[in-house]
């Protein structure tokens, strides 16, 4: 059964959670990726392994963490390792199947900016938080999924700064830069899903969320977005998925409000 009363954010989170397969090892970014990864774990992928960069290995939080290192993550983890070990053995060592990343801005090749917008690097108009773990997640995880609400400010023709490599300038440029992994294989927004074109590596719309039009997607994208030859409709969220997601958010809100 489906429920047509879901929000665009819920559609995005559900679609992203479905992209994770049971048993995969996932390096989870904070925010939307964390909601999607935990929804997957509590629905179709009970054996998905979630890892956060704070060193929490195989964590199973009941409540979504506000930060990447909330106590909930450490308490429910199989084990907690140091941050150098996390980045050296587990990420660089090739143990991660999927890196799940958010972003401030993305371009048509799935390169990500989380550093500065406008002005110059030293005197930016907007200083963003910076790289965190993303540059090495983007090149050491076997593949990456990008999760981001779609708007012309976020989906831009040209990034002011490349913080994390996607498909570079397209074609083989990612491999030529020295990356040995697949890079972004999927982008999930609140309007649609995209995948890189097999040759050009340009992100191309592959599925459109129910009720969304092509014109909406074109208007929300800062480059001339292309659509795959066969575009399908994203399957609507199941009632069971929405129930679990809403319960996760309700538990999280109660837990965070309970702290004074």
């Amino acid at each position: 059964m489906s429920d047509r009363t879901y929000t665009a954010d819920e559609m995005m989170t559900v679609a992203a959670s479905r992209a994770l397969r049971n048993g995969q090892v996932c390096f989870v970014g904070i925010g939307q990726p964390s909601a999607a990864a935990n929804l997957a774990r509590q629905t179709h992928a009970p054996d998905v392994v979630l890892i956060y960069e704070s060193g929490t290995l195989e964590t199973r939080p009941d409540v979504l963490p506000l930060s990447i290192g909330d106590g909930e993550l450490a308490e429910t983890a199989l084990t907690n390792v140091s941050v150098p070990e996390m980045f050296r053995y587990w990420l660089q060592g090739g143990r991660i199947d999927v890196g799940f990343l958010g972003a401030a801005q993305v371009d048509r090749y799935g390169n990500i900016n989380t550093t500065v917008i406008g002005g110059t690097y030293l005197k930016p108009k907007t200083r963003l938080p910076g790289a965190g773990g993303a540059p090495e997640i983007a090149t050491s995880a076997r593949e990456t999924f990008i999760l981001l609400r779609q708007s012309p400010r976020a989906f831009v023709e040209k990034l002011d700064f490349i913080t994390s490599l996607g498909h570079g300038s397209g074609g083989n440029s990612r491999a030529e830069a020295g990356a040995k992994t697949l890079g972004p294989t999927r982008l999930i927004s609140d309007l649609c899903q995209m995948a890189p074109h097999p040759e050009t590596k340009e992100l191309t719309v592959t599925t459109i969320h129910p009720g969304v039009t092509r014109d909406q997607i074109i208007a929300a994208t800062g480059w001339a977005i292309r659509f795959a030859d066969s575009v399908t409709e994203t399957p609507v969220p199941e009632l069971s998925e929405l129930a679990v997601l809403r319960e996760i958010h309700a538990r999280t809100a109660r837990a965070h409000a309970g702290q004074a």
Partner: peptide, 10 residues
């Protein structure tokens, strides 16, 4: 020494 900073502007 590590495998990092591949293809970015930092």
């Amino acid at each position: 020494v590590f495998r990092g900073y591949i293809g970015n502007d930092l």
